[in-house]
Amino acid sequence: MSDIFFPLAVFFAAVFTNNILLTNYLGMCSFLSVSKELETSAGLGIAVTFVMAVTTALNWLVYEFVLVPFQLEYLRFIVFIIVIAAFVQLIEMIIERYSEGLYFALGIFLPLITVNCAILGASLFMVIREYTFMTSFFFGLGSGLGWFLAILAMAGIRQRLRTAKIPAGLEGPGISLVIAGFMAMAFMGFNGMITIS
């Protein structure tokens, strides 16, 4: 595969075949607790996608131009978390200042995002897999969209389930995990479409 298309292949792989939630179990906490309503899930999904795409690219720059030259790679956990937290804080301040509507729609989700393991996870995967800058950006964007897709589907299914009769012990997180398992199986159907090493 030529170099120009590699970022695109990584993008599609991150959305479908290597979905960060359904194959790596990242971002489960907010996935299980927020997926009750379709609208809030969509809001959180958009926020996660945006933050993940930008922070993965930012962290790539920081890693490549600050941590590697000074041989501080072992500090990456702390540095990545700080970059993510600072970026989220900055976005919160910007949208609070310029768009009140957006602030009320997305503002409440932003603090939740700093502790979303999928965001840090995307940055750590990017380092381990030695992606280039463009690939990292598309990987972050794809992982975010994949997460968005998964939580949206889950919220839709859970809304339908509201009237269903579920065994008492399985209510809440139990049934959500079963659904997530079936979704993971469904996504396995995409396997073989794109293979990246």
């Binding site: 790596n24 179990y25 399985l170 995990l177 079963v178 398992g181 993971a184 396995m188």
Partner: peptide, 13 residues
Amino acid sequence: PPGGFFMLAIFIW
């Protein structure tokens, strides 16, 4: 991956 989801669900149940 699905196995992890199912096992945890069964355990919680």
